Simulated assay, not measured.
Amino acid sequence: MTPLLEVRGLNKSYPAGRKGLFGKRMMQVLRDVSLTVQPGEVLGLVGESGSGKSTIGKAILRLIPSSSQAMRFDGQDLNTLPSADLRRLRKDMQIIFQDPYASLDPRKTVRAVLSEALDTHDLHRGAARQPRLTALMEMVGLNPIFLDRRPHEFSGGQRQRIGIARALAVEPKFIVCDEAVSALDVSIQAQVLNLLADLRAKTGISLLFISHDLSVVRYISDRVMVLYLGRVMEVGGADQVHFAPRHPYTAALISAEPSLGHAPDRIRLTGEIPSPLTPPSGCVFRSRCPYALPACAETAPELRPAGEGRLKACIRDDILQGT
C-alpha cells in the first residue's frame, strides 16, 4: 500500500544566540527523522517535552521551514510544491492544537469559526452552509443550538470538540493532533479520545497523534514512534511497544506511568532531557541510560530491525528481550 504521508530525513535547526566569529550557533531539534502514515492509520508520536514532537507536526504541515530528503503527501512532493498548490492541499492536511481556548478566536461565535474554515476553501456556500454546520456539531457531540455562542461559554472539553469540528469541516485526509488532550481532565480526555477513534472509524481519516503520555498514545494508535531529543528511538505496533519495549528510553516512559503495587524492575530516569545545544556524543540517551556502555559515547546508533517488524536505535541486543 502506498503511504498517504512519507517523510525521510527530516531535519530542523534554530539559530541560538548572537552571530559569532564563525557564524550563528545552530540548535538542531530534529535529526534525520523518517516516518510513514498509511491511509486510515493512526501513528502515535511520543516523548518528553522538548523532544521535538510538535516540531515534526508543524514541519509536515509546512507551518515552519525545515529540510528533508523527501516529504510526500498523497503523491505530491511537499518540498517543491508551489505556494498556490500548497494552499489548496491544506484542505487535506489539518491540525488540532493543544490549548482548546487559545486556538479559538474569543471574539467569534462557533458559527463564524467553522464558517471561516469553509470559506477559506470555498465549501458549502449559500443554502448548503447551515446543514453542514449542523452536521459538524452533531459529528463532535455538540448541540447545533450552540452555534451562536462564543468560546468562553464552553468547557475545555467542549472547546476542544469545536477545534475538532473546525479541522473536520473541510473533510481532510490527515490531521495532526498536537497534544490534543493533554490540557483536559482525565475523564474529558477519554471522551475526546473516544470521539477521535469514532471519527477515524467513520471517515477513514489518518492521524498523527502527538503526546507525552504513552498510555494515551497506545489507546488510539496503530503504531507508535518514540522520540528523544529530536531522534527516533523506537518504532513498532502500539501494543508491542507498550508491553514489550526494545529501547531503554521506551521502557523508562512506561515505568513512569502510574502503577498499583510495587514494581522493582522499573527504569527510573534521572535529570532533565539535555539541551539540543549540547547533546551528548554518540547516543543522545546515554547520559540517562542505565544500560549505557563506553561504546555508546562513540557512535550515534541508527534505527535497525528489532524483530516483528520493529525498529530501535540502540547498539545493545542483550537487554529488554522477551519483556
Rank of each mutant, 00 (worst) to 15 (best):
Q240W: 04
H242P: 10
A244P: 06
P245N: 08
P245Y: 15
H247D: 08
H247I: 13
P248Q: 05
P248C: 04
T250E: 01
T250N: 08
T250G: 01
A251T: 01
A252S: 08
A252H: 07
A252N: 06
A252W: 04
L253P: 11
I254D: 10
S259C: 03
L260D: 11
H262D: 15
A263L: 15
D265K: 03
D265A: 05
D265W: 02
D265Q: 14
D265S: 02
R266K: 04
I267M: 04
R268L: 13
L269E: 01
L269I: 13
T270S: 10
T270C: 04
T270P: 03
T270L: 14
G271S: 02
E272N: 15
S275R: 01
P276S: 03
S281C: 02
V284N: 12
R286Q: 15
R286M: 01
S287Q: 08
L293K: 14
P294V: 05
C296T: 00
A297C: 04
A297L: 05
E298Q: 10
T299R: 12
P301Q: 12
P301H: 12
E302P: 11
L303G: 05
R304E: 13
R304L: 11
R304H: 14
P305Y: 04
P305R: 03
P305I: 08
A306S: 06
G307S: 07
G307P: 07
G307E: 02
